[in-house]
Amino acid sequence: MRQLVIVERVCLIGHIVSMVFGLVGILLVVPNAEIIMNLTEVGQTAMQWSMAGGGVVYMILGAAAVFLYAYRTLGLGRALAFLLPSVFISLGSELSGTSTGFPFGHYSYLSGLGYKIAGLVPFTIPLSWFYVGCVSYLLARAGLEVDKKPSLLRHIGAIALGALLLTSWDFVLDPAMSQTSLPFWYWQQPGPFFGMPYQNFAGWLGTGSLFMTVAAFLWRNNPIKLERSQLNLPLIVYLGNFTFATVMSLAAGFSIPVLLGLLTGVAPALALWWQGSNGQPVAIEPATQEISVANVKVALK
Rank of each mutant, 00 (worst) to 15 (best):
N221F: 01
T73V: 09
P197F: 08
L233N: 03
V5R: 10
A215H: 13
K297T: 09
T207W: 00
P190I: 02
Y137L: 04
G206P: 03
W204R: 11
G208Q: 05
F123V: 08
S90D: 10
P223N: 09
F242W: 14
L210G: 04
G253D: 07
P192L: 14
Q289F: 01
A65P: 06
Q275H: 10
I16A: 13
G143Y: 08
A33Y: 08
G143Q: 00
I236C: 03
V57Y: 08
R9T: 04
P197N: 04
Y115Q: 07
G157N: 04
G55A: 05
L68I: 15
L218K: 02
W204D: 04
L27C: 07
Q230R: 11
C134W: 12
G55Y: 12
L138P: 06
S277T: 10
K116Y: 02
G191K: 06
L113W: 12
G265D: 03
S168H: 07
S229Y: 13
L139Q: 08
F194D: 13
V5I: 10
V258Q: 12
N221M: 01
L23E: 03
L226R: 13
P281G: 13
G75V: 07
S128G: 12
L74D: 03
H106Y: 12
P192H: 09
F21W: 14
V66Y: 06
L139A: 07
T207C: 02
H15S: 11
K149Y: 00
A52S: 14
Q179D: 09
G54P: 01
L270M: 09
F254L: 06
K116S: 08
A299P: 00
A245D: 01
